[in-house]
């Protein structure tokens, strides 16, 4: 009985601390947004130059749902714009992942591929993907293709480098164990080296998906006439900074969700790793 009586206030205190800990996180952003709102409404700067958070939210709402056409031609077209960007991200990212993993395993595993392929790739790697924009436009015109090409360039190298690293650092004894159990060369790659390199490959994929969003938006600002990046740049020309900010928020949100999705896939695939992490955290 005493334990029950004693436990109740303790539990209440615990809940209160939990609540405060939750509040701690939102205090700074809430103050920032409130300050911004007050400052924007004070009239120090013209509202066109610094839209208030409420105006940005309004623009975003209309862009998504199209209730009062404050975003004019974009009103209600958010899904179309977001989808256009997301497809470019996905296209370039998928291509980069496939080729990055294939080339990475080949270079990491075979001296022949390392000697023949790696010097060329290492020379191309320091060239910033955005500097390919002129060539991308000349080669592919103004459409999805140059954007996907740029995304590919930005996403390929992180996947490649991390895959090479993952394959090269596979525990030598695991390979010996595989050979001892009679694995063929192909089985060695598919059943031992590739799964062993997966944690490293996923680290590369997560960097790559961030790059992919960055380059999609860049490409859309310059070489494509649709997508969130295009809306952002177009609104800038029409001095609609509320839409610019709404586009920035959308891009940030979708980038965050892509990473979250990838993290969920990683958690499922690398479940064998997690048990140790969980124990490590508990202990």
């Amino acid at each position: 009985m005493t334990s029950v009586i004693d436990a109740a206030p303790a539990r209440r205190a615990f809940r209160l601390t939990r609540l405060f800990q939750g509040l701690e996180r939102v205090v700074v952003p809430a103050l920032l947004i409130a300050g911004w709102e007050v400052f924007a409404r004070s009239g120090v700067l013209p509202p066109a130059l610094l839209p208030a958070p409420s105006a940005v939210l309004h623009a975003l709402g209309d862009w998504v749902f199209g209730f009062d056409e404050t975003t004019q031609t974009y009103s209600g077209h958010w899904l179309r714009d977001a989808l256009a960007s997301a497809l470019r991200v996905f296209g370039g990212f998928a291509l980069a992942s496939l080729l990055g993993i294939l080339a990475g395993v080949a270079i990491g595993w075979s001296r022949l591929f390392e000697k023949t392929l790696e010097p060329t790739l290492q020379m191309l790697r320091p060239i910033p993907p955005v500097s390919w924009i002129p060539l991308a436009i000349i080669w592919f015109g103004i459409a999805d293709k140059p954007a996907i090409f740029l995304v590919f360039l930005g996403a390929f190298f992180p996947v490649l480098m991390n895959t090479i690293h993952g394959v090269k650092t596979v525990d030598h004894n695991l390979v010996r164990a595989g050979a001892m159990m009679g694995a063929s060369q192909r089985q060695m790659l598919t059943d031992i080296v590739l799964p062993a390199a997966l944690p490293s490959i996923f680290a590369g994929l997560r960097i790559a998906v961030g790059s992919a969003w960055m380059l999609t938006v860049t490409a859309e600002m310059v070489a494509v006439k649709s997508g969130l990046g295009y809306v952002l740049w177009d609104s800038y020309y029409f001095l609609r900074y509320d839409i610019v900010l709404a586009a920035m928020i959308s891009i940030g949100l979708l980038g965050y969700l892509s990473d979250l999705g990838l993290k969920a896939i990683m958690a499922r695939t690398l479940r064998w790793q997690q048990t140790t992490t969980v124990q490590g955290r508990a202990g």
Partner: peptide, 16 residues
């Protein structure tokens, strides 16, 4: 080859 089973100093199991 699998005609010679090896037990390593560290277990050397496939962790996945």
């Amino acid at each position: 080859g699998s005609d010679r089973g090896v037990v390593f100093q560290q277990p050397t199991l496939m962790p996945w």
